Amino acid sequence: MSIQHFRVALIPFFAAFCLPVFAHPETLVKVKDAEDQLGARVGYIELDLNSGKILESFRPEERFPMMSTFKVLLCGAVLSRVDAGQEQLGRRIHYSQNDLVEYSPVTEKHLTDGMTVRELCSAAITMSDNTAANLLLTTIGGPKELTAFLHNMGDHVTRLDRWEPELNEAIPNDERDTTMPAAMATTLRKLLTGELLTLASRQQLIDWMEADKVAGPLLRSALPAGWFIADKSGAGERGSRGIIAALGPDGKPSRIVVIYTTGSQATMDERNRQIAEIGASLIKHW
Rank of each mutant, 00 (worst) to 15 (best):
S221A: 11
E169Y: 05
A225V: 08
D269M: 03
F70S: 08
Y44S: 01
I54Q: 06
S128E: 00
V106H: 15
R238V: 09
R238G: 05
A183I: 12
L160Q: 08
P249N: 15
A235K: 10
A211W: 14
V101K: 06
G154E: 13
E26W: 15
D174C: 15
L111G: 08
L137E: 14
N173A: 14
G43K: 00
T179F: 00
V157E: 14
R81G: 05
V101W: 03
Y44I: 10
N50V: 05
L89R: 09
G154D: 12
V72W: 01
S233D: 00
K252L: 14
P217H: 11
E169M: 08
Y44G: 07
A215M: 15
T186N: 15
T261F: 08
S68N: 00
A222R: 04
L74P: 01
A84N: 10
V31Y: 01
L247A: 11
M66K: 00
H24S: 05
E62K: 02
R63D: 09
L160A: 12
L150S: 10
Y95I: 03
G194L: 13
V82D: 04
E169F: 04
D83E: 12
Q86N: 14
D212H: 10
N152T: 11
G154S: 12
G216K: 08
L120M: 05
S281K: 14
A40W: 10
L247W: 04
S80Y: 14
A132H: 01
N173M: 09
L28I: 06
R202F: 05
Y44N: 00
I140T: 08
E237R: 11
N152G: 07
A170S: 02
L135V: 07
R255L: 06
W208M: 12
H94G: 05
H24K: 07
A246T: 05
E277S: 09
G114L: 03
K190Y: 15
R202Y: 03
G251E: 15
T198L: 12
T126N: 08
V214D: 10
S96T: 08
P224L: 07
A132M: 00
D36M: 07
N98D: 13
A84T: 09
A124P: 00
G114Q: 08
A245C: 11
T178W: 01
G216M: 12
A245Q: 01
I283Y: 02
I278W: 06
S240W: 01
L74R: 00
G248R: 11
G39S: 03
P105D: 11
L282E: 06
R189P: 04
L79F: 10
G248F: 02
V78T: 14
T267I: 03
H285E: 04
G154C: 08
F70W: 03
S240T: 13
F64P: 00
L55K: 14
A183Y: 05
V78E: 12
G142Q: 06
V42R: 00
V72E: 02
L223F: 13
M127N: 15
M180P: 03
L160T: 12
H156K: 10
E62T: 02
Q203M: 03
C75H: 00
L196E: 05
L205F: 06
T179E: 00
I93H: 15
Q86C: 05
G263S: 13
T138Y: 11
L191T: 04
A133E: 01
R91W: 15
M268C: 08
R91H: 10
T158N: 02
E119V: 03
L188S: 03
E237C: 14
N173Q: 13
N152K: 13
H285C: 10
A225P: 09
V117H: 06
V106M: 15
L38C: 14
A215L: 06
K252R: 08
Q204L: 03
R159W: 14
L223R: 06
V257G: 04
L188I: 15
L120A: 09
L247H: 02
N134G: 12
D113K: 08
I244K: 00
T126I: 08
E108C: 15
E46H: 14
A185C: 06
S80A: 12
E277A: 06
A133R: 00
T262P: 03
Y95W: 15
L146R: 01
D250G: 03
T267Q: 10
S51W: 06
A246S: 06
D177C: 09
P217T: 14
D129M: 00
Y44W: 10
L137P: 00
L219E: 07
P172F: 07
G194R: 15
A123T: 07
R91L: 10
I278G: 00
T147I: 09
G216H: 07
F149N: 10
A225M: 14
P143K: 02
L197A: 13
V82S: 08
S51C: 15
P60R: 14
T198H: 05
S240M: 14
D83Q: 04
P181K: 00
S240R: 09
M268T: 13
D269Y: 02
G85H: 07
T116Y: 12
A222K: 14
R220T: 12
A245Y: 02
D269S: 09
T116L: 13
M180V: 04
P181M: 03
G85P: 07
V29Y: 04
E35Y: 07
A246N: 15
H285G: 06
T138A: 08
E210Q: 15
T193Y: 02
L218C: 04
D48C: 14
G52S: 09
L47R: 11
S281A: 09
Q203N: 04
G90H: 15
I275M: 11
L188W: 10
T158I: 05
E270C: 04
E195C: 15
Q97H: 09
V78D: 01
N50C: 07
D83Y: 04
E169H: 05
G226I: 03
S57Q: 03
D36P: 04
R273K: 15
N168Y: 02
I278R: 00
K144H: 12
R202W: 07
A148K: 12
L192N: 02
P172Y: 09
T262S: 09
A84L: 07
F228H: 15
P253I: 15
R41E: 02
E195G: 10
I244T: 15
E175P: 11
L167S: 08
T69Q: 02
T147R: 11
L100K: 15
A148G: 07
D269R: 05
G216R: 08
P253S: 06
H110P: 12
T131N: 03
R118G: 11
T112V: 14
D155H: 01
L146H: 07
L167C: 10
N134S: 07
T112W: 15
E237V: 10
D48E: 03
E166N: 14
R241S: 13
K109Q: 13
L160K: 03
G43L: 01
S128D: 00
L74A: 14
T107A: 05
G216P: 07
I45E: 06
V31T: 07
A40P: 05
E87L: 05
V72K: 01
Q274W: 09
S264A: 10
V72M: 02
L47T: 09
F228E: 09
L79A: 12
L79V: 11
N173H: 15
D177H: 00
N50Q: 05
S68H: 00
K144E: 04
D113G: 02
L49I: 15
K30V: 09
K109W: 10
A133N: 02
I93F: 15
T131K: 03
I140M: 10
L188A: 03
R176T: 08
S201F: 13
E169N: 05
N50G: 06
T116W: 12
V117Y: 12
T261G: 07
E61A: 03
A266W: 03
M209E: 01
L160I: 07
S57P: 08
L247F: 06
D174H: 12
L192D: 01
A211Y: 15
I125K: 00
A266D: 07
D161L: 06
M184R: 01
R241Y: 14
P172S: 04
N152W: 13
M180H: 08
L89P: 13
R202K: 04
T262W: 08
W163I: 07
L137W: 12
V157F: 06
D250Y: 02
V101C: 08
V82H: 09
D231Q: 15
H285M: 11
A132N: 00
S104K: 08
N168H: 13
N98S: 13
